[in-house]
Design a protein around this nucleic acid. Sequence first.
DNA 1: TTGTATGCGTTATCAA
DNA 2: TTGATAACGCATACAA
Lengths: 325, 325
Amino acid sequence: MAKLAGVSIATASKALNNQPQVRAETRAKVIQAAEALSFSPNTLAQGLITQRSGTVGLLTSDLEGRFSIPILMGAEDAFGSDQTSVFLCDARGDNLRERHHLRALLSRRVDGLIVVGARPDARPSLGELPVPVIYAYSPSDNPADLSLVTDNVGGGRLAVDHLIRHGRRRIAHITGDPSYGAAQDRARGALDRLAQEGLPLAGDQVWFGAWSEAWGRGATRMLLQRDPGIDAIFAGSDEIARGVLDVLHQEKLAVPAQVAVIGFDNWNILAVNARPPLTTIDMNLEELGRLAAQRLFAAIDGTLGSGIETIGPRLITRESTAPLD
Amino acid sequence: MAKLAGVSIATASKALNNQPQVRAETRAKVIQAAEALSFSPNTLAQGLITQRSGTVGLLTSDLEGRFSIPILMGAEDAFGSDQTSVFLCDARGDNLRERHHLRALLSRRVDGLIVVGARPDARPSLGELPVPVIYAYSPSDNPADLSLVTDNVGGGRLAVDHLIRHGRRRIAHITGDPSYGAAQDRARGALDRLAQEGLPLAGDQVWFGAWSEAWGRGATRMLLQRDPGIDAIFAGSDEIARGVLDVLHQEKLAVPAQVAVIGFDNWNILAVNARPPLTTIDMNLEELGRLAAQRLFAAIDGTLGSGIETIGPRLITRESTAPLD
DNA sequence: TTGTATGCGTTATCAA
DNA sequence: TTGATAACGCATACAA
C-alpha cells in the first residue's frame, strides 16, 4: 500500500487528489511512493462514494458497427478518455439480448446510456430508467425522450443543390428501401430543392428499391432506358452509387463529364475506392456522438431535454461530380 | 431498500443469491420486494468484495472497427452478456492515448485485457500488467505474451487450393503492401500450394502494391499484358479483388467462366455486392474473439499461456469461382 | 432460519 | 497540516 511509505491513508488520498490542505513535501513523498508501487486508485470504490461510476453504456443494434463506431469515437472525444469509459454492447436486433445488456449496464451503475438503433427510424423507447438516456441515429418512439438524429431531408437537399450548382438540369434519384424513413426524407429533400429551382425530376419517379449495389445497377439500367438524357444521378447511399457507376461505365457514359454521380453516407471503403472517387453526403456521425456525450454529461447533474434534435449533413466533394461545361 | 420489505440486509442478500440457508417463503418475499423496487444489485460494491469487476477491456487501434467488431462480438458471446461487459477503447494509433486508456481500464479493475492492433504484424508488448492480457489479430513482440492470430499462410494455401480443385492452372496473385506480414504470408501459402501441384505462378511474380481497389485495377492491367492467358486471380483482399473484377469486365473477360477470382477477408459489403459475388477467405475473427475470451476467462484463476496461437481460415464460396469445363 | 458485525478501497468530516 | 473514523452497498463468517 502506498501508505506504507510514510503517512496515513487519509493524507495519501488528499495528496493524490491535490487537496490544498497538505504540505508540498508530504505530497511529493506520497506521489513518489504511488509511482514506485504503480498504484492506481480503485475507481469502483470511488464510485461507491461519489455515486458516479464514470462509465456510460452504448447500446447498439447495428451489427456491423457502421454507425456505432463513429458515434463511439465522437463520444470518447467529448468525454475524455481519462474521465469516462464506454461499455459497448451489441443487442444484434434481439429484444431479449437488449434487456440482458440493459440489466448488466444498470447494475454496473453507468452514469448514462446512448442507444443506437439499427436503422434511422423510430425505435421503441426503453421507458423510465434511473439514468439519462439519449437515442442516437434512431429516434425513440416516445417524444418525452431525447433523440439525436441526422437531417436526411437536409442531406437530400444538399446533394441536389450541389448538382444544380454544377449546372445539372436533368437529375434523377435512385434510392433504397421505401419503408425506411431515411429514404423518404432524402427523396423529399431532393424534390424540394428541384421544385425550388423549377426543375422536374428526371426519370419520372424516385426509384425506390433496396440498399444494394445490385439495385443501383438495375435501377440505372431502367432509368437509362426511360430517360437517356440525364446528366446527374443522386444515389441514396454509397452502395447504390457504386452500382450506378458500374452501369454508367458499361454504357460508356463518362463520369462526371456526361453524368455526375453523388452518393450518401461517405462510407470510405466504398466512396474513396470508387472509379472515380465519389462525391457524397456525410451524416456527421462523429459530431452526433460528440453531441450525445455532451448532452449526457449535462444531463447527469441537470435535467435532460426531450424531443428530436437534428445534426446537419456535410458535402464531401470528390471527382464524381464536376461543373458541366 | 429492498430490506424495507421485511427482513435484514443479510438475509436479503442470501435470498437474492439463492443461498440454500433461507426459507422459501422468505425468499419469495424478498424477490417480490426487489421486483417492486426494481432493485438492481450494485456490481461496483460486489466487485469491491469479490475483487472481480466482471469487466474486460478491449483496447484497439483499428479505426474503422473492421477487425475489432467481430472480435468484440465473439468475446461477448463467450463471456455471456450478463456475466461480463466489455469496455471498448480506441487508441487511434496514438501511443499516448493508448497509455491513457490503459490507465483508465486498470483503475476500473478490469479482469483482463484484449489488445487488437491496427495491422496483422507484431506490435509492442504492454509489458507486465496486473491482469492477464491477450493480443488478438496483431501478435505481441514479446514471446512471453499470449497472442492469437489468423493463419495467413493457411489462408493463401486454401485460396489456391480451391482454384486448383476447380481446374485452374494459370493462377496469378495480386496483393497489398509488401511490408505487411500478412501479404507475405498469404503469398507464401499460395506459392506453397502451387509448388505442391507443380504449377508455376502465372504473371511471373507476386504483384505486391497497396490494399486498394486502384491497385487491384492497375495490377490487373499489367498482369493481363504480361500474361493474357491466366485463368484465375487470387487477390490478397476483397478490396483488391473488386479492382480486379472491374478491369476484367472492361476487358470483356467472363468471371468465372474465363477467369476465376477469389478474395480475402470476407468483408460483406464488398464481397456480397460484387459482380459476381465474391468467393473469399474468411479469417474467422469472431472465432478468434471467442477464443480470446475463453483464454482470458481461464487465465483469470489459472495462469496464462504464452506464444502465438493460430486460428484457421474458412473458405466462403460464392459465384466468382466455378469449375473450369 | 435469520440477524449482527466486519471489511472491500476510497473520500469526507471532523478532531487533534 | 495530519490522522482517526464513518460512510458507500454489498457478501460473508459467525452468533443468535
